[in-house]
Computed example of a mutant assay.
Amino acid sequence: MPHCTPGMKIGLLGGSFNPPHMGHRLVAEMALRRLGLQKLWWMVTPGNPLKDHGVLEPLSERLRLSRDIAANPRISVTGFEAAHKIRYSADTVQLLKVRCPGVKFVWIMGADSLATFHLWQDWQDIFTAVPIAIIDRPGSTLSLLSSPAAQTFKKFRLREERAASLATMRPPAWVFLHGPRSSLSSSAIRAAEKS
C-alpha cells in the first residue's frame, strides 16, 4: 500500500487497466488538479468481477504498463488489492478506512462506470463511506442523469465549481466533472490489437 499520513487528500482510481492508456492518465491528472488532491493511487485490480477474465493480462504486466503511462510523482501505481486478496471495491474502501485513519480519500471513476455502479457489490456502502468524483466520458454524460446510483444519491451531488472541497466533505457527497475527454478505451485497444 502506498505511503499516506492523516490529513492527506488522496484519490482512488481503480480498474483492470487492461491495457492502461493515456485516457487513464488524463482522468488521473484532471482529478489531482480539480479536486485539490495531494496524491492519487492508481489501483490495478486483480480483475473486475463483472468482466471477462479470459482476456486479462497478468497483473505484473498491467502494473508495469500503468507505471510507464502514469509518469507523475503524485500518482502511485499499486496492486495492493491482490496482496490483500480483495475482490470488491467496497472491501477496498473498508480496508483503507481502517488502515489509514484520518486520510481523506475520494473515489474516482468514469461516467461509463456510473451507469452500472448499482451492479457493484455493496455499491451504496461506497457512496456512504467516501466522497466520489465522476469524470465525464464520451457518450456517457446522459447515463449520469438516469443511472440508479445517480438517482439514489441525487440530493448529495455538489455543483462542479465546489469540486475542490469534495475531499473534506462528509459522505455521501459526489461531483460530476466535465473537462477534456479521451475516446480511448481498453476494450477498443484490445480489439484493435486482435485485428
Rank of each mutant, 00 (worst) to 15 (best):
C4E: 04
H3L: 11
G14P: 09
R34H: 10
G7W: 04
G7F: 04
H3C: 05
C4Y: 06
P19E: 09
L12A: 03
G7Q: 02
H24K: 12
K9Y: 00
G15C: 07
T5D: 03
H24L: 10
R34L: 09
G11Y: 12
H21Y: 12
A28H: 09
I10N: 02
M30L: 14
A31Y: 08
R33H: 12
N18I: 01
E29G: 03
I10A: 03
K9D: 00
L35W: 11
P19G: 04
M30D: 11
M30W: 00
M22C: 04
L13F: 15
L26E: 15
L32N: 02
G23V: 15
T5E: 13
H21C: 15
L32E: 01
L32S: 02
S16P: 06
P19R: 14
N18L: 04
R33W: 00
K9Q: 07
P19C: 05
P19V: 10
N18T: 02
S16G: 11
G23A: 15
V27K: 07
R34N: 04
F17P: 03
E29D: 08
N18D: 15
G11A: 05
H3A: 11
H3W: 08
P19F: 12
L13Y: 12
H3E: 14
R33P: 00
G11M: 07
A28T: 12
R33L: 02
L12R: 03
P19T: 10
L32D: 00
R25H: 09
G15S: 10
L26W: 14
N18R: 12
P6Y: 14
R33D: 14
F17S: 06
R25V: 11
P6L: 13
G7S: 01
R25S: 05
R34F: 02
S16V: 03
G15F: 06
A31K: 07
P6Q: 10
A31W: 11
L12T: 05
H24N: 07
G15Q: 11
T5F: 01
L32C: 01
P20D: 15
T5P: 00
L13D: 06
L12C: 03
M22S: 08
E29Q: 14
S16F: 00
A28M: 14
A28E: 07
S16K: 11
P6D: 15
V27T: 10
K9W: 01
E29W: 09
P19S: 05
R33V: 00
R25D: 04
N18Y: 12
A31N: 07
R25G: 02
M30G: 02
S16L: 03
G14R: 05
H24Q: 09
A31E: 06
R33S: 14
I10E: 01
L35I: 08
H3D: 11
L13E: 04
G15D: 13
H21F: 15
M8T: 01
E29Y: 10
R25Y: 06
H3Y: 09
K9L: 04
F17M: 05
M22V: 02
C4T: 09
K9P: 00
M8G: 08
H21R: 07
V27P: 02
G14V: 13
L13R: 00
L35T: 08
G11F: 08
G14F: 13
P6H: 12
I10S: 04
R34P: 02
L32R: 01
L12I: 07
L35H: 12
R33Q: 13
